[in-house]
């Protein structure tokens, strides 16, 4: 009997199911692009709205027909910058420490802690930003300089928020590097640092890049922290100590009020949404380029 040709209905069914799972995410994307794109097109088709004005205008006030998205975009980037200032150096250092230096015991203590903390609701971080980070910034730089709602505070706290995420994912990537590579490096006389930084780190770079991407995307899309701590009201400013509304902050503030479904305000949110979507898409494409350029052929 030829086992290779044996009819296995179970396997076929499972394969069909797996295929469905595989393409399921495509449906999600189509849903997002279709639904959000549809509303965004309605927005751009409205009288008095132009794509150019949308992308270059510095005033966002849908109530009075001013649709320039820049104030929302700049504050999103300011908060992201501050978040990365915290998350990248600390996140990677912790990941390297956990995977290369820490004893099993320490690792088994710290990793679960980080996992639990990753689940703290972002509202809590928002409140933390407002009640803890902002007072600290105000006492360092002076209450006249730092507004009670400011993008720096929200950004720094978002950095703390994604620390467990970046650490956990990078550490997983580092741990996944085969032990033989480390042994080979140590056998050649490399110090632990050299092994970690020159051998293990490059081998895990794709996982680490993925971690950072997910981190950035998370920050760009993070809503509750900026909604609570970064201030409300779109404002075109580069000063991180002033309050300014980010893209997500604006969307949640407006949609929390349950808008009229066919108003231009409602459609304008989807225009921001699609822009947000494209920004994250752009980031991901850049990072995937980096990944493919530096990927070490391990194993």
């Amino acid at each position: 009997m030829n086992l290779k040709k044996k009819h296995r209905p179970g396997e076929t069914f499972i394969q069909a199911f797996l295929y469905f799972c595989g393409i399921f995410s495509i449906f999600t994307t189509i849903g997002i692009v279709f639904e959000i794109g549809k509303e965004a097109l309605l927005f751009f088709g409205s009288p008095g709205v132009s794509l150019w004005e949308f992308l270059t205008g510095t005033t966002w006030q849908p109530q009075v027909g001013e649709f320039g998205v820049l104030p929302l975009v700049t504050s999103t980037f300011i908060t992201t910058f501050f978040a990365m200032l915290i998350a990248i150096p600390f996140g990677l250092a912790i990941a390297i420490y956990l995977s290369e230096y820490a004893t099993i015991k320490v690792k088994n203590t710290i990793k679960p802690i980080l996992e639990v903390l990753a689940g703290i609701p972002t509202v809590v971080y928002g409140y933390f930003a407002l009640s803890f980070m902002t007072p600290i910034l105000r006492s360092i730089f002076g209450a006249d300089v730092v507004d009670i709602y400011n993008t720096a505070s929200a950004g720094l706290v978002m950095g703390i928020l994604i620390l467990p995420l970046i650490t956990s994912m990078s550490e997983d990537a580092l741990s996944a590097v085969p032990r033989s590579l480390r042994e080979a490096a140590v056998g050649l006389g490399a110090t632990k640092l050299e092994t970690a930084v020159k051998v293990v780190f490059p081998a895990a770079i794709s996982g680490i890049a993925a971690a950072i991407i997910v981190g950035i995307s998370r920050v760009v899309g993070e809503t509750m922290i900026v909604a609570l701590a970064a201030g409300a009201g779109p404002k075109f400013t580069f000063n991180p100590f002033e309050g300014a509304e980010t893209m997500t902050g604006h969307i949640v503030r407006i949609s929390g009020g349950d808008l009229s479904y066919d108003s231009i305000d409602y459609n304008s949110l989807f225009a921001i949404g699609i822009l947000l979507f494209f920004i994250t898409l752009g980031l991901n494409i850049i990072s995937q380029r980096i990944v493919s350029r530096f990927r070490e052929v391990g194993e």
């Binding site: 909604a227 609570l228 201030g231 409300a232 009201g233 309050g243 503030r253 929390g256 009020g257």
Partner: peptide, 8 residues
């Protein structure tokens, strides 16, 4: 600043 959240 404009907010639906009166506490803000």
């Amino acid at each position: 600043q404009f907010s639906e959240d009166d506490n803000i």
